[in-house]
């Protein structure tokens, strides 16, 4: 299952960069519940959870104790844990949820949880509003994050997915730092921040 609200520029980038992951899932014959835009609401989320998905990609805004969907409607909070999240692997592309929500989900049976302990930051270039997948800066930030899901789809453990994602983040940081253009080099600070706050909770050996 993927939730991908699109009510502001930041989450819209996350939504668009989820498209290749949906395509990769479908090409492997997997069923995908795609809660895009208005469908990323609480009611549709609960209905989709009834099918007990084994992998959830949650794009959205978050706080320590909650993650939201379209127009910041809360989908999961520490006070509202759906039983169908037991046994799942969750990757939450939002800020802060690895502080309280992730640990709470692990204690209630979610197998593993990849998330962020601080703000997740994405830098994008102007002029790509209608062609976001080709935005060279957005690619530097979001392709390493997509690696978490791609590795899981390839049957790897969450620890492998997590490490590959972090490795790709470091590779891109070094790429930026080697740039002859100072404006490009300085952006590495934001990518390093994302690298440092991405964490894995729960069972590192979990697979979908």
């Amino acid at each position: 299952m993927v939730t991908r609200p699109s009510h502001d520029q930041g989450v819209n980038y996350l939504s668009v960069f989820s498209n290749p992951l949906i395509m990769a899932s479908l090409s492997k014959g997997l069923e995908v519940a795609d809660l895009s835009g208005k469908l990323a609401n609480f009611a549709d989320f609960i209905i989709a959870l009834d099918k007990k998905p084994n992998l959830l990609l949650l794009n959205g805004h978050g706080l320590d104790d909650k993650i939201t969907g379209q127009n910041n409607q809360v989908l999961i909070s520490t006070k509202l844990i759906n039983k169908n999240l037991t046994g799942t692997i969750i990757y939450a592309r939002s800020c802060l949820t690895a502080n309280l929500l992730g640990p709470k989900l692990i204690t209630t049976g979610t197998k593993s949880y990849i998330g962020y302990t601080k703000e997740l930051i994405i830098v994008t270039s102007d002029g790509y509003d209608k062609n976001q997948l080709n935005d060279p800066l957005a690619k530097v930030f979001l392709e390493p994050l997509n690696q978490n899901i791609l590795e899981l789809l390839n049957g790897h453990k969450t620890i492998t997915a997590f490490n590959k994602s972090k490795s790709k983040l470091r590779k891109n940081i070094r790429f930026l730092l080697k740039s002859q253009i100072r404006q490009t080099r300085d952006i590495a600070a934001y990518l390093w921040h994302d690298h440092q706050c991405q964490v894995l909770l729960g069972d590192p050996n979990a697979k979908i």
Partner: peptide
Amino acid sequence: AQSDKIKIHFSSGET
């Protein structure tokens, strides 16, 4: 020193 042609998006909602 950063470019004027970029935006920074925070997962809390600010751009």
